[in-house]
């Protein structure tokens, strides 16, 4: 699905991302762990072609993401509020994203039915623009809009950080389902070691832009991670 070849990005002499080689297979569910400044978000931005790499390249389905735009058709991502069009209502935003992916209004409505409990009555018909929603609810809109696209590759940055506990466990369920039923490739980052070891089958630990550990999740993973992040 994704191949990373010797990618590097430096900001003001400081290494932000420096990954020699990374392969991600179709249908993998991968967690990215690392402290602030480890380069997780920068790495995601590189995958989405939002920043130019200093060296190396990223291939999505064997095609360079900088050379063509095909990846956009099967990739959905939510990194931060910068992905929302903040002066639209949630409905308008969903319909817009739906339209970009050839979904009719009826399709979108039907799809959103499945999010009723996740939204908890605070999003649809709330009479607010996205900019007036709380950060957690904005995140829910972003996540739902990603899933709406039924992508092959889903990228979420810190999806658990702004969610309430019930929404966190609902999200975990949804991610599992997407992975098992639709074979979706999922890439998430999180500070919450419990959550990612819970959901992800493979975990990448990043530090100062490098992937310093690449492990398959097992029973010991959580302990290993906790030991690594202990101060």
């Amino acid at each position: 699905m994704l191949t990373v070849n010797n990618i590097g990005k430096v900001y003001n002499g400081k290494i932000a991302v420096d990954i020699n080689e990374l392969h991600i297979q179709q249908g993998e569910i991968i967690g990215l762990a690392g402290n602030n400044g480890a380069g997780k978000t920068t790495f995601f931005r590189l995958i989405l072609d939002l920043i130019r790499a200093d060296r190396g390249e990223i291939l999505s389905k064997e095609k360079s993401i900088t050379q063509n735009e095909e990846w956009k058709q099967y990739t959905a991502a939510y990194l931060d509020e910068g992905f929302l069009i903040n002066y639209l209502t949630p409905e308008e935003y969903f319909y817009f994203v739906g339209k970009l992916n050839n979904l009719s209004k009826a399709d979108v409505d039907e799809y959103l039915q499945g999010f009723t409990s996740f939204f908890d009555g605070a999003i649809l018909k709330s009479g607010k623009y996205l900019r007036d929603l709380s950060k957690g609810n904005q995140f829910k809109v972003g996540i739902a809009a990603c899933m709406l696209q039924n992508p092959e590759l889903l990228i979420l940055d810190e999806p658990f950080a702004n969610l309430d506990p019930s929404s966190q466990s609902r999200l975990i369920q949804m991610l599992r389902e997407l992975h098992e039923k639709r074979r979706m490739t999922i890439l998430i980052s999180s500070h919450d070691l419990n959550h990612i070891t819970d959901v992800c089958k493979r975990i990448l630990v990043m530090e100062k832009g490098r992937i310093i550990n690449d492990m398959q999740t097992s029973e010991d993973t959580l302990h290993e991670l906790e030991a690594y992040f202990k101060v």
């Binding site: 931005r45 989405l48 956009k72 990739t75 910068g82 992905f83 929302l84 069009i85 903040n86 970009l100």
Partner: peptide, 16 residues
Amino acid sequence: WQSVHFDGVMASNINI
């Protein structure tokens, strides 16, 4: 005008 959500515009399924 779209600077706040330009990341989103560029990452979504919109042909340049």
